[in-house]
């Protein structure tokens, strides 16, 4: 009895330390807007966007923008239930957030099993404050992950990163 006009929906989550730009990335992706003002997310924000999966098919991504935490709490575990894939987000001006992302990836895999994910190294517009060394970036690349240097401010690679994940979860 499913409605034939409704697109297939997939749930994806953004996870990462606080203030790395998860909400800004979502707003850039869904509404194509950006604000410099930092507003914390409490709980979770849900948004949807229709994306092209291939030339003939579109799908609806349900994006769960989850409040930043340095570990997977039991509450966040509830929020993440049923996810098809996720976006790990770190802030390139705060190298400690990369460590957090590595940890979150490990925990997510332990709880939900191996799922498609993409790594976003965000705030790539802040060149003068960029604190990721070449060695650190190489370390990430050596893991064989899909990595994007994104900027929610300029929009660089945001759409690409979400689209890549969308194709992986269908």
């Amino acid at each position: 009895m499913s409605n034939p006009t409704t697109e297939q929906k997939r749930k994806v989550c953004l996870v990462g330390d606080f203030a790395v730009g998860k909400t800004s990335l979502t707003r850039r992706f869904v509404n194509n807007v950006f604000s410099d003002k930092y507003l914390t997310t409490v709980g979770v924000k849900i948004d949807t966007k229709v994306v092209e999966v291939n030339e003939s098919q579109t799908a609806k991504l349900v994006v769960w923008d989850i409040a930043g935490e340095s570990t997977v709490t039991s509450i966040n575990e509830n929020y993440m239930k049923g996810l098809a894939g996720y976006l790990l987000v770190a802030d390139g001006t705060r190298p400690a957030t990369i460590e957090t992302a590595l940890h979150l990836q490990q925990r997510t895999e332990e709880i939900f099993g191996s799922l498609p994910f993409v790594f976003l190294l965000n705030k790539n517009d802040l060149e003068t404050q960029w604190a990721v060394t070449d060695a650190q970036e190489q370390l990430l690349r050596d893991k064989g992950w899909k990595i994007f240097l994104t900027s929610a401010k300029s929009g660089a690679h945001v759409e690409t990163a979400f689209s890549w994940l969308a194709r992986e979860v269908y």
Partner: peptide
């Protein structure tokens, strides 16, 4: 269909028990 009408139920099955304290749409 739960999936088509209620975004936050995407991926949820009839056996799941969940507490989601704060959800914004």
């Amino acid at each position: 269909d739960a999936d088509s009408k209620v975004d936050f139920l995407v991926g949820v099955t009839a056996q799941d028990e969940l507490e989601l304290p704060i959800v914004q749409t």
